[in-house]
């Protein structure tokens, strides 16, 4: 793709040198062992490596453990309501398309109470990286079964084991029109996670990244405890995310074409049954963003012209007596 005038305008001439501290407000207050620490660290490293201005980053979150994310990231942030991060992100992206938007949610937040917003925002394809930190449990409210909990999960609302098969967020997302980016990574794979976030960050459109993580307190055994035995398989493709197996002992690498929606759907559909796919599952950078679509139709009018135009409009309602 050739350079757009927006790219040109936003190009930086100044040299800055941001370090990790420039993206850190305070020590994160998540439990030790929590995957949130890893996700935050990977994001901060990615921002540092790309020398992103902290004031141009906006991190919107919902409610839940993961949604404390913006408080620990030195950037602008909006810690919204349970399930409602995405509408606020849509508002920010419509208001200020030039800001670098990041939306962080948990599995209950995004897939359950925020399900409707999730589906529709995927369809809007707003320009935002959307991270879902999925630990298969409601943690902040103290251990209730979540939409992604495996069947049989013992929780405070399902003490005899949960009753339903989990929701497959990857398959659902792939069923939405205008989907442009889906990737999956895991919090115990720092290298892969950072590479995934980087790829997502550079995507123009909604980059949906599901980050698998365990909850050391309420769901320590999610995803085999995030251990060397985690059954993952890496998706490899030339424009995909570089394979970085990290600690994994038993993770095959398979060729996958992320531009092929049918291949992506096959990978997603099997994710729970065999091995969790890691890497870029679907990618279509050609899908236009919602703000690009909308603003291509919106006139540029300065204050004077606007006042004049409104006055002209009022004439339509005028009554000469």
């Amino acid at each position: 793709m050739s350079l757009t005038i927006d790219d040109f305008v936003q190009k930086e001439e100044s040299t800055c040198s941001y370090g990790m501290d420039d993206y850190t407000t305070e020590a994160a207050r998540w439990c030790k062992g929590c995957g949130g620490h890893g996700a935050l660290g990977a994001l901060q490293r990615m921002l540092r490596d790309n020398q992103v201005h902290p004031e141009e980053v906006v991190c919107v979150s919902g409610i839940g453990c993961s949604s404390r994310f913006p408080h620990y990231l030195r950037a602008y942030g909006f810690h919204t309501l349970h399930g409602r991060a995405l509408p606020v992100s849509v508002g920010v992206s419509l208001a200020r398309p030039e800001l670098k938007l990041l939306t962080v949610m948990g599995d209950g937040d995004c897939f359950s109470i925020g399900g409707n917003h999730w589906l529709h925002t995927l369809r809007y394809n707003i320009n935002s990286m959307v991270m879902v930190l999925d630990n298969e449990i409601y943690a902040l409210t103290k251990k209730q079964v979540s939409p992604t909990s495996r069947i049989g999960t013992v929780s405070n609302t399902s003490p005899r084991g949960s009753y339903l098969e989990p929701l497959n967020p990857l398959s659902v997302a792939l069923g939405i029109s205008n989907i442009s980016f889906i990737a999956q990574t895991a919090s115990w794979l720092p290298g892969h996670m950072q590479a995934t976030l980087e790829k997502a960050w550079k995507h123009k459109g909604l980059a949906f990244v599901r980050i698998l993580q365990r909850c050391p307190v309420f769901m320590p055994n999610a995803f085999q405890g995030g251990s060397v035995d985690f059954p993952g398989k890496f998706l490899e493709s030339p424009e995909g995310i570089p394979v970085d197996k990290g600690i994994l002992r038993d993770a095959p690498v398979v060729a996958h074409d992320p531009r092929n929606i049918n291949a992506a759907q096959a990978v997603a559909a099997n994710s729970h049954m065999e091995k969790e796919p890691l890497g870029l599952i679907y990618y279509n950078p050609e899908v236009p963003t919602y703000s690009d679509i909308r603003y291509s139709k919106v006139a540029t009018v300065d204050r004077k012209a606007k006042a004049k135009l409104l006055d002209d409009y009022l004439t339509r309602y005028s009554v000469e007596s």
Partner: peptide, 12 residues
């Protein structure tokens, strides 16, 4: 260190 997830266990 490259594989560290910064989970705060050891630091704590």
């Amino acid at each position: 260190s490259k594989l560290c997830t910064a989970c705060d266990e050891c630091i704590t």
